[in-house]
C-alpha cells in the first residue's frame, strides 16, 4: 500500500515540482508569475500536438519551448510595457484556456482532447521526467543560491537599482528568469500529456498551476522549499486517490472536499501565522523596474 502510494507520487509529482521550481525563478527575479497555469497548458498542448508528428521526447522539447514562448510574452508585457504583473499573468491564463479549446476544435475537430500519442519511454518503471524532477530542484537551488548568476537574480528581485549600479542589465536578467520559469512550467505541462496520460485533454492542467504557486509560497520562495511543498501536496493528492479505492469508509468521515482544500488552507494558515514582516517574498516583487528611480 505504502509502496504503491510512493509509486503514484513519483508519477504525479513531477509536473507540480517543475512548475513550482520554475515559479520561484521568476518571482526571485521580482516578476510575479500567476500565469503558471496558462504556461503549463501551453506546454501540455504543444507537447502532445508535436508528438503526433515527431518522436515524443522531441515533443516534450516543443512543450518546453511553448511554455517559454508564453512566458516571453508575459516578460515583454511586465518588463518592457510595465504592465501590472498579476493582470498579465491572469490574462495569459484566460487566453490559454480559450486558445486550447479553440485549437483542439480547429486542428483535431474534438472538444475534449487530442488523439493518443506514444508515451515517453519508462526508465526503472517511471518516465525520465520523474528522475529529472528528483535532480532538478537541487540543481536550480544550487544555481540560485550558490552561483554569481543566482546572486544577481536574487538581488534583482530585492533591489534592482543596486544591481543596475553594478553594471548588470536588470531587464535582460529578469527576462531570462521569466522565460526559464515558463520553460519549466511548459515541461511540467508536457509531463502531464506525455507521461501521466498519453494525450492532451481539455481540462489540463486543472488548477495544478495555481497549486504550484501555492507550493512556491509555502516553500518560502526557495527552489528546494517549493519542490518540497510540491512533493507534499502531490503526496496528499495521491493519498486521497488511493484512499478512495482502498478505504472508501474513511472518506465518509473525512470528505474528499476537505482533502482537496487542504494544500490551499495550509498555505493560508502558514501565511496567517508568520509574524508580520517575516514574509520571504522578494522585496521588489511586482514592481516594474524603473531605471529613473534610485
Amino acid at each position: 500500500m505504502l509502496l504503491a502510494l510512493l509509486q503514484s507520487v513519483l508519477d504525479a509529482a513531477p509536473a507540480l515540482v517543475f512548475a513550482a521550481v520554475g515559479a520561484t525563478l521568476s518571482e526571485r527575479a521580482g516578476v510575479v508569475n500567476v500565469g503558471v497555469e496558462g504556461m503549463m497548458r501551453a506546454g501540455a498542448f504543444a507537447a502532445a500536438a508535436a508528438a503526433l508528428v515527431m518522436p515524443t521526447p522531441l515533443g516534450v522539447l516543443v512543450g518546453v519551448a511553448a511554455g517559454a514562448l508564453v512566458a516571453a510574452l508575459h516578460a515583454t508585457l511586465c518588463i518592457h510595457a510595465r504592465s501590472d504583473q498579476v493582470v498579465s499573468g491572469m490574462a495569459i491564463n484566460l487566453v490559454l484556456l480559450a486558445l486550447g479549446q479553440f485549437l483542439l476544435e480547429a486542428a483535431f475537430s474534438s472538444p475534449s482532447g487530442t488523439p493518443p500519442i506514444e508515451q515517453l519511454p519508462k526508465w526503472l518503471g517511471h518516465s525520465p521526467l520523474t528522475w529529472l524532477a528528483v535532480v532538478l530542484p537541487f540543481v536550480v537551488h544550487g544555481a540560485v543560491m550558490r552561483t554569481p548568476w543566482g546572486l544577481r537574480l536574487r538581488a534583482v528581485g530585492e533591489k534592482p537599482q543596486a544591481v543596475a549600479a553594478m553594471g548588470v542589465r536588470v531587464t535582460r536578467l529578469r527576462f531570462g528568469a521569466v522565460v526559464l520559469s515558463g520553460g519549466l512550467a511548459g515541461l511540467g505541462g508536457a509531463q502531464l500529456s506525455t507521461a501521466v496520460l498519453d494525450r492532451f485533454e481539455n481540462h489540463m492542467p486543472a488548477g495544478l498551476g495555481f497549486m504550484a504557486v501555492a507550493a512556491m509560497v509555502f516553500g518560502r520562495w526557495s527552489p528546494l522549499g517549493a519542490a518540497g511543498a510540491a512533493l507534499f501536496f502531490a503526496f496528499g493528492n495521491a493519498l486521497r486517490i488511493s484512499l478512495a479505492s482502498s478505504a472508501p469508509g474513511l472518506l465518509e468521515v473525512v470528505p474528499k472536499g476537505f482533502l482537496l482544500a487542504l494544500p490551499y488552507a495550509l498555505t493560508l494558515v502558514v501565511l496567517a501565522l508568520q509574524p508580520r514582516g517575516a514574509s520571504r517574498a522578494p522585496a521588489a516583487l511586482g514592481q516594474p523596474y524603473d531605471p529613473e528611480l534610485r
Binding site: A81, V95, A98, Q101, F102, L104, E105, A106
Partner: peptide, 21 residues
Amino acid sequence: GVHKSFPELIQGLALLLVAAR
C-alpha cells in the same frame, strides 16, 4: 466549425492587450 467558447478567446486577447496599457 468554431467552438462556442471562441468569444472567450476574443475576450482573453483583449485583456492581454489592455494589460499593455
